[in-house]
């Protein structure tokens, strides 16, 4: 028998190797298909699109051809307008979404912990969550003018309430055993929040971040219907006005791509070691 300081380690070494093999296998199995399969899917979709438009099954008046879209996109790239549009939209989304998180999470914590506050405000939160940000468009312009601030306001309105609800649900779902352990260890106040409550809801928050950031990015098109002069959403509306479906589709492509990248970045949060527990088992 092998003993380490009097402890039989056979069962553990067994598990250890299991653990390692799991980590390795996860990586080696997924890396190639993860990059290759989507690329193949995109290529097939492009080919189908190209065939449909070049054979005239889908005439240019109904949907632009890949070549037109590519021309439109390179024109936008060349003039630098595309870059400015991306920056403008990202800036609005990041600030609006950031404020939604920064204010939504604390509100969710309060509502999650305090039944009285929950009873008081939950119907209101659900009420506002049901309103499309488009409904606020007129007031956004009246209150915040045209441009960045009113777009940010609209994105904030679209993200704050879902964030409150997600946090609330996460807090309400924390197993009471964690608070028992915390009390046994004399954790309270800010320390309890920092070391127990927040980490306990963090995995769910990360998922909520991804979902809400997705909402924010979807809303950007609507949020830039406020007389904004730049931004991908504005470019969509403007391309429609300008009767240029090629630019329209070019901007749609960019919005979709940026959305994918944003989600990938946020998905990386789930790789933080102290959050892994929420994404495994």
């Amino acid at each position: 028998m092998r003993f380490v300081r009097g402890v039989d380690t056979r069962d553990f070494s067994n598990e250890w190797s299991l653990l390692k093999s799991f980590a390795v296998s996860q990586r080696s199995v997924s890396i190639w298909p993860r990059l290759l399969l989507p690329a193949v899917a995109v290529a097939v979709a492009l080919a189908v699109w190209w065939v449909l438009s070049s054979t005239g099954v889908f005439p240019g008046t109904l949907f632009p051809s890949p070549a037109d879209v590519w021309a439109g996109m390179s024109e936008e790239l060349r003039t630098g307008r595309l870059f400015d549009d991306i920056v403008a939209s990202l800036f609005r989304v990041v600030v609006g979404f950031g404020l939604g998180v920064l204010l939504g999470v604390p509100c969710g914590l309060v509502l999650g912990h305090n039944p009285l506050a929950r009873a008081t405000f939950l119907p209101g939160v659900n009420f506002f969550r049901s309103l499309s940000p488009l409904a606020w468009l007129g007031f956004a312009i009246l209150w915040f003018g045209i441009g960045d601030v009113s777009s940010m306001f609209l994105i904030f309105m679209a993200t704050f309430f879902p964030m409150v609800l997600a946090t609330l649900a996460a807090v309400a779902g924390i197993p009471s055993i964690y608070f028992r352990v915390a009390r046994d260890s004399d954790l309270s106040g800010i320390e309890l929040l920092r070391r127990v409550t927040l980490p306990a809801i963090m995995p769910q928050l990360v998922t909520a971040f991804r979902v809400t950031a997705g909402i924010a990015w979807v809303v950007v098109v609507a949020a830039e219907m406020n007389g904004a002069q730049e931004g991908l959403g504005f470019a969509i509306i403007d391309a429609r006005n300008a009767l240029s479906p090629d630019l329209l589709v070019a901007n749609m492509v960019v919005i979709g791509l940026v959305g994918v990248v944003l989600d990938q970045i946020l998905a990386r949060l789930s790789r933080i070691p102290s959050l892994r527990w929420g994404f495994e088992r």
Partner: peptide, 10 residues
């Protein structure tokens, strides 16, 4: 506890 008494983020 019988199980899950460890804080999983630590």
């Amino acid at each position: 506890f019988q199980q899950d008494g460890l804080l999983p983020w630590m």
